[in-house]
Design a protein around this nucleic acid. Sequence first.
RNA 1: GUGAGUGUAGCUCAGCUGGUGGUAGCACCGGGUUGUGGCCCCGGAGGUCACGGGUUCAAGUCCCGUCACUCACCCCA
Length: 423
Amino acid sequence: MIRLIRGFRDILPEHTGLWALVEGVARELLENFGFSEIRLPVLEHTELFARGIGADTDIVEKEMYTFTDRNGDLLTLRPEATAGVVRSYVEHGFCASAPVQKLYTMGPMFRRERPQRGRYRQFYQINAEVLGVQSPLADAQLLVLVHEFFSRLGVTDAAVHVNSLGCPNCRNPYKEELKSYLAAKSGRLCQNCLRRKETNPLRVLDCKSEQCAEAVAGAPSMTDWLCDACRDHFAAVLSAAESQGVALVLDPRLVRGLDYYTRTTFEVRTSALGAQNAVAGGGRYDGLVQLLGGPPRPGIGFAVGVDRLVEILAAQKGYPQKCPDVYFACLGDAAKKAGFSLAAGLARAGVAAEMDFDGAGLKGQMKRAGKSGARFVVILGEDELAGQKAQVRNLKTKEQTEQPMEGLVESLARRVKEEKDNG
RNA sequence: GUGAGUGUAGCUCAGCUGGUGGUAGCACCGGGUUGUGGCCCCGGAGGUCACGGGUUCAAGUCCCGUCACUCACCCCA
């Protein structure tokens, strides 16, 4: 038997309904907030990610699916979407012709990490990016959008954590301050943090080890080191988002792994997922467009981890069940043909209709009809064909009536609609 | 990449200190009802006990290796 590649998975029909629901809510909301869809390739030149994400991040160092194409090009399956969106923005000249772009995209990303709960090697993200806007209202709009998205889906324990990482002007002095603080505490840091305090001191702030958390409790906070411009920006983001009822958790320990983040950074967390508690994350990346060969243009965006979100929703509410409105149980070849044509007519009329193709007995077909969750069964056999009347049975109420086959599509469509209106 | 735990029917799992694979539950198929579902009753089908080696008279059970899954670390959505 040929099996799945490790870390990859099939999303089976019983689950795709929830995926479609999540994507549908996202799409509608994003469109209403003025975003336009952009569809991008899954494969890009490796250099895009090496430059965009940062050559010495873990993603680029050891987690990318990278291979050499037949002509020698070094290609990579995208580990995240932002770099590709920005590449497209620059490549198509939007920087000059239409610098303000609000874009969204959804699809698979790839990272070669060790799989565990909520983490797969092919995973799905919904991404939204605002390019060319400096205003804190852009940051706030994304927070409002994210908040609305989760509440519309009914995720109960999602909390939006937010922080500002400042700009290079204020972050670099802060980093130095933090480094010297950490140096003084180095005796109490865990192995990882001893290494990290040099390479990526901000990361020490959100180390999960208890001793590090204690050691870092009195550490200087980035928000105290923000320059005037960054401080004003952050304050404006918070007040605009809060004016729309978005509950924010100010979290000076919130740090993001990717090099390109500046200023506003945020993450949606939930307790429902074990160690993988982030279900969405994002932030401002004012240097990225330029880093990828464009003129200086600000940007901000976020990504929702769809795999994780679906898992949370499934745990809270289960997967929605899909059932046909009408199920045809037909006995004999002539009745099969009649049922085939009626089922097709109903499907064309917008009614979910299913028929039993096989020649099982009536009992078997009724059983399958019941199992399918259909509201109505239409029974067609020799007697019905002879009289040109079908038996229509409501599986919930057990009412069964005879209906003329003439006009059956219309009458069934009407009854289905009534049933649905009555709940 | 590191650590720990699991691997028996399509799914969930029994299987004791080694001694013939479970009338186990769910799901599936058929029958009880020549043409009426869910409940009930009866029957059926389904397995290289993850794979490979070793110990033994004898291995699902013990040992080693491989692979996969799970959880966690690392990192991240």
